[in-house]
Design a protein around this nucleic acid. Structure first.
Ligand SMILES: [Mn+2]
Ligand SMILES: [Mn+2]
Ligand SMILES: [Mn+2]
Ligand SMILES: [Mn+2]
Lengths: 219, 219
DNA sequence: ATATTAAGTTAGGGATACCTAACAAATTAA
DNA sequence: TTAATTTGTTAGGTATCCCTAACTTAATAT
């Protein structure tokens, strides 16, 4: 049974792996905020468990077993976030921190019951997919708002960042998952967008913001 | 911030303290299923934290601070049990094991929200009191069913054991908190009781069972 | 091609939380 | 009052998870 630290390493490894399957020890250390010797030591333990491949001075990679183990932690994390949001009424900017702890509970019936109460959700409060019990992810091919053309209307489906500051910015702008957004105008100079959604008309979204919004084209 | 192990030691210490404020290292070790040297070492750490009094070869006792710290863990445990039972629909025989883990989460807002959703309960699914935020317990003076006289009618208020086997026995007998029980007869020989409650008439409860049921006299 | 920089490793610690074996102190029984 | 038993302590380990300092290997720049 993986320890809390191990589960956090697996999640970080999965995240880095999805960007580049050749993971450096340094970036892993940065993500987890631990020193390089700490990572070095832990990686040897993970290798012994069969979750990563490790050879001295070479980049780390996740094994199939490691990917599955990581997916199961991510599953617990995202189910927890969904539970905190849907059942307990927490805001999407509050759920991550608490889920970071709940994800380490060792109780299948607890997570099964959560899943059941939520009606077997397939995504978390930030639109990220919840892997199934076997660790399989549903791949969504959402588009990035910043790449949508003028005049198009889209629905907000997911976020590429779940940073608390970003989520609070979206709260202030009253942008949430499901919001139907029309791109009125794109400023050539800085690629900022003028958009309308709900009761908001002609709201300006900067390029970095629009680049973090994943959408589906409606028309 | 106390570690998980520390929180479990505090709870065990509180339990033993309530039976006898002079706690032996051996009984603490037995309750926590750890060796005596392990307890010895941990007690020195707890003493350094100001939670227990410790002198070589002398019995351990909880300080006021220790009692409060313990009460706050018990509060988290019992709120969790109540949440698991009332909100998530778990049986009273299932909640303890999961709460044993949830109690260690570090998040005030999480437990506050639980408390709120439950309507600020004062007792857990087994009838045990939930201490307040300052660590104060409400003392109930319930009577023990085995000491009730023939012909009396009582209401089941709490249990003196939350052992899983015992709870499953009560489930089978359809005895739950709130059950109104009439003592029809007491057998002199073994002190077993013939009782009636709900749809059940003339059910025999052995003395050890009746001694674990805490009741309030109705008539 | 060499020098500089970045990445990874070793060596040597520390804290927590557990263990067994051996022994000492205190209590209880004979 | 001894002897036996129980209780508590020390000594010496182990595993996990973290650290800094110093070093080596690999990659990058000049
Ligand atoms: Mn999250
Ligand atoms: Mn975590
Ligand atoms: Mn309990
Ligand atoms: Mn616990």
């Amino acid at each position: 049974m993986p320890s809390q630290a191990t589960e956090n390493y697996l999640k970080a490894l999965y995240y880095l792996y999805s960007k580049n399957p050749e993971i450096s020890l340094t970036e892993l250390g940065q993500r987890l905020e631990v020193s390089k010797p700490t990572v070095n030591e832990m990686i040897k333990r993970l290798e012994k468990q069969g979750w990563v491949t490790y050879e001295r001075y070479k980049p780390i990679s996740l094994t199939e077993e490691g990917k599955k183990a990581a997916a199961l932690v991510i599953r617990k994390h995202r189910l927890s976030e969904m539970f905190l949001s849907e059942i307990m009424g927490f805001g999407w900017e509050e759920v991550h921190q608490i889920a970071e702890q709940i994800e380490h509970l060792k109780s299948d019936i607890f997570f099964d019951r959560m899943n059941e109460m939520l009606g077997f959700p397939t995504s978390d409060p930030h639109g990220s997919p919840i892997p199934d019990r076997e660790g399989n992810f549903i791949v969504n091919n959402y588009k990035i708002l910043s790449q949508i053309a003028e005049g198009k209307t889209v629905e907000l489906k997911a976020l590429r960042s779940s940073d608390k500051e970003f989520l609070m910015y979206l709260n202030k702008k009253e942008i949430r998952l499901g919001s139907v957004i029309t791109v009125n105008n794109i400023e050539k100079f800085d690629k900022s967008m003028t958009v309308s959604y709900g009761k908001q008309t002609n709201v300006i979204l900067s390029q970095p913001v629009a680049a973090k919004l994943l959408v589906d084209l409606i028309s």
